Structures are given as structure tokens and as C-alpha cells.
Simulated assay, not measured.
Amino acid sequence: MTGKTGGRTPRDQARRTLSQNFLVDTAVVDAMLAVAEPTGFVLEPGAGEGVLTRALAGQGTQVTAYEIDPLLAARLTARTHADHRIRVIRGDFTKATAPRTPFAVVGNIPYSATAAIVDWCLTAPALTSATLLTQREYARKRTGDYGRWSLRTATTWPWFTWELRGSVPRTSFRPIPSVDSAILHIARRPKPLVPHHDSYVDLVRTAFSGIGGTVRASLHTRYQGVDRALTATGIADDTIVAHVHPDQWVTLHALLTH
């Protein structure tokens, strides 16, 4: 019967539930590889039909491909079982244990799991970089493309760079999604910009608390010498928190926490 599903098949239902939009544009695959520059060990969340999986293996990497859909995982296993460079795991990438040795993440990830996958990457100690196809809106917000910066980007900036490395039209996928995508590249810095993680994150979170409506008002609730630090950093008294560049948070941290 089709009355309760609007005529959609079980596969249609799975695609909607799991946010499955398969990459079919080889030019985008090439662009992903150019940005990721994959070497060594790579994890791929949301492997799907394996277009990116096989391309990564073709670069000489060892790929562990995660696919939560049992049918797709079985198909990909069957197609790649003879390739010693590829290992397919049926399961949720965000539940995986992170490797202890250096690795990268490269993937066309489900839109619905974007935040969880990014969080997983940022908390994996051995991660070197993550090159992800995300909704364009998400990538723009996280990389300051609107002239505004998110709390997530600001709190991780001393340890990771966030870059928007190209837009991807929705027609590059099947089924065609309702929005365009983008290549988001997150890379671990060789050397952190601040020595103390907790004090930096506390400062940024205090500023993002919204108390008083401005950076100045929020920081005054906890720190001494705020006015002098803002002047030295080039931040006007009426600046709202999202308009502060992450590099300025690093400077403020140095000035306000000795």
C-alpha cells in the first residue's frame, strides 16, 4: 500500500530518513581530492555507493568507509572486497572509536548528521583534517563567509582552521537536494595559537553568553581591563559577539588572561 507513504518505496523512505544524496559529479570528486590531498589513513563517513571511496583508494590511501544503510554497505562491500585498500564498515560513523595514529576524514556526509560528524572530528586527538561536503549554508556560517562567526568556530580556532573551499551545485547529486552544498575543510594547526584550552574557551563562551548584548558588556561580567583590551584589539565598544574575528579572540585571551 502507498497511502501512508505518498507512493514512496522503502528505499525512498530510507533515503529521506538517512539524508541520502549520492554524489554523481566526477568534477566534484576531483575537487574534493584536491582539497583533501589524502595520504595514509582516511575515514569516510556516509560512503553510500562508493564513488568517493574508490577515488580515495585510487590516491593510494587506506580507506575505512562507514555506511549506516545495510543495503548500501553490503553492495559496497561486494564491489570492493578484492581491493585491499578499502575496508567497509556497516555502522554509524559517529559511534566509531577514533584511531590513535594520524588520519584524515573525507566524505559526502548526510546533511542531518553534519553537526554530529563535525563534533566527532574536532574531538578526535589524532585527526589531521576533515574535508566534508556539507550544506552550503552550514559551511558559510562556520567559515565567516557572512561576516559573522559561530561559537563553534570561535572556540576551536586556536587548534583548527576552517575554510570554505568551493560551492557545489545541487545538480551534482542524485536525488537532487533542495539546497546547494560546499566543500568545508577543517585542518588541525601544527601548533596551537593559545597555550591554555580551558581559559580560552571560557572567555569565548562568556562573551557569547549574550549578557548586555555586546562583547564589552559580556566580558565585563568576569574580566578586568576589558576596555583597554578591546581598544588594543580594534574592537568597538558596541560590537556584537558574532562580528569578532576568531583571531581577535586569541588576542583578547592573551590580554585578559595572564
Rank of each mutant, 00 (worst) to 15 (best):
L18H: 12
V226M: 02
T214Y: 03
T77V: 03
P246Q: 05
Y138R: 00
R8D: 10
R152Q: 13
R142K: 10
S129M: 11
T101G: 06
R165D: 04
L164P: 04
P177R: 05
F173N: 12
R16D: 08
D227M: 03
V42E: 11
Q224A: 14
A31P: 09
D247M: 04
L256G: 00
K4V: 11
R170H: 00
I89P: 07
L122Y: 03
L132G: 03
T80Y: 04
S150P: 02
V63A: 11
L43G: 06
T161N: 08
F22S: 09
A229F: 01
P177K: 08
T171P: 02
S181I: 04
A78K: 13
L255A: 14
A27Y: 07
D12H: 14
A78C: 09
T155P: 00
T257R: 13
T61S: 15
S167V: 07
V201Y: 01
A65L: 09
C121G: 05
Q13R: 14
V88I: 13
A182Q: 04
A116I: 01
L255R: 13
T257S: 12
D145E: 14
I86S: 11
V250N: 02
E137N: 10
G40W: 06
P246C: 04
G3F: 09
G213H: 08
R205L: 10
Y146N: 10
A57Y: 05
D227W: 03
R222A: 13
S167H: 12
G91I: 04
T64H: 08
P169S: 06
S167D: 11
Q224P: 07
P192S: 05
H84P: 07
N21A: 10
D198S: 10
D237N: 12
Q20W: 05
R16F: 04
R11D: 10
G107Q: 02
V24L: 06
P125N: 13
P38Q: 08
L33I: 11
I117Y: 06
T206E: 09
T53H: 11
D83G: 08
V42Y: 00
G147R: 08
G144S: 04
H245A: 14
L71V: 15
T153S: 08
A229C: 09
D25Q: 12
A14F: 02
V118R: 09
R100S: 14
S150F: 01
K4A: 15
P195D: 08
P10Q: 11
D247Q: 14
G212N: 03
A207H: 01
D12A: 15
A14P: 02
R174W: 05
P175I: 08
T80D: 11
R54L: 11
A57E: 13
V63R: 12
V168E: 01
T101Q: 15
K95Y: 01
L230I: 05
K141C: 10
R85E: 00
